[in-house]
């Protein structure tokens, strides 16, 4: 058995393989790694193929939480059963790439994807989900919404060297979940995940693609929660959606090199937030 390709059969074997060779790259779907390999930007010295690790593709319930394996593909996350559990993640899955990419790309791979994370991470931040990072020493749970989205690549904050993402733990929430995605040029996207429970008076909103990590708009969330009628679950005023959009944009402040681009991104964030609220509350 040569050591340049390893095909572990279990999670333990997979993390052992990654621990033995720190330069080895884990490969699940390959949709994030292979474009860089094809473009000669990455030359892997060893690969750990995850195709035979069945535990990565499992999902189930655990007291009020959905446990989703990191190896679940976008196509699987968009299926009706998982869409009923975590609607915002299914909505994000439906907007990813092409059918061929959705068939191969996985949740875990997307969490660590190069570039500004815009698909799964804002949803996980809005749902206050945790990511399970496993190493031979044990499992560490990391909450993406508690990291520092503006300070650097989120994957480096999330995962320590030698760790493997094995799954996410998503709270099953009542209320509506919305996901809005907007292309902003040069292959870049801005996304916004909104979770609103009119019954419990709770609003959570996270923006992806604006910074190296997903950014929560805590003040705007509190403002919108205050505008909700606890009994009917409606907003006090038809203009609340647009006002919420402006508040989110002010708080998130998307980054771009040029001032005009920053202004444009701010506008896009405001529109995404307004549309999410309009879809969630009607009007």
């Amino acid at each position: 058995m040569d050591a340049t390709i390893l095909m572990p059969l279990s999670l333990d074997e997979a993390v052992d393989a990654l621990a033995r060779d720190p330069r080895a790259l884990p490969v699940a779907g390959g949709t994030d790694l292979m474009p860089r390999v094809n473009a000669e930007l990455v030359r892997p010295s060893a690969l750990v193929g995850l195709a035979k690790v069945a535990d990565l593709r499992r999902w189930g319930y655990e007291d009020g939480f959905a446990m989703l394996g990191a190896g679940l593909t976008w196509a699987r996350l968009a299926d009706a059963d998982l869409a009923a559990l975590v609607p915002a993640l299914a909505a994000a899955a439906n907007e990813v790439g092409t059918a061929q990419v959705r068939a191969m790309g996985t949740l875990g791979g997307n969490i660590l994807a190069s570039g500004r994370p815009a698909d799964s991470l804002p949803v996980l931040a809005a749902l206050e989900a945790t990511v399970s990072c496993r190493s031979p020493g044990g499992v560490r749970e990391v909450a993406p919404h508690l990291l520092e989205p503006r300070s650097g690549p989120i994957a480096e904050q999330l995962l320590r060297p030698g760790e493997l993402i094995t799954g996410v733990r998503v709270p099953l929430l009542r209320g509506v979940q919305e996901f809005v995605k907007a292309p902003v040029g040069a292959g870049r996207y801005l996304t916004l995940a909104l979770v609103a429970g009119p019954v419990v008076g709770d609003v959570r909103c996270a923006v992806g693609g604006a910074h190296p990590g997903p950014v929560r708009a805590f003040e705007a969330e509190r403002w919108l929660a205050g505008r909700m009628d606890a009994r009917s679950g409606r907003l006090s005023d038809a203009r609340d959606a647009a006002d919420f959009g402006r508040l989110v944009a002010d708080e998130v402040r998307p980054e771009a090199e040029q001032r005009a681009a920053r202004a444009h991104l701010r506008h896009v964030v405001a529109v995404c937030a307004r549309r999410a609220v309009q879809r969630a509350f009607g009007g």
Partner: peptide
């Protein structure tokens, strides 16, 4: 070579996938 154009599509276990995005050895 980036999984955008779809010309490299093959079936993997009956599902259409982009062959250029798959590490064949894994």
């Amino acid at each position: 070579g980036q999984g955008v154009c779809g010309t490299c599509t093959v079936q993997l276990d009956g599902v259409a996938v982009a062959a250029c995005l798959i590490a064949a050895a894994t």
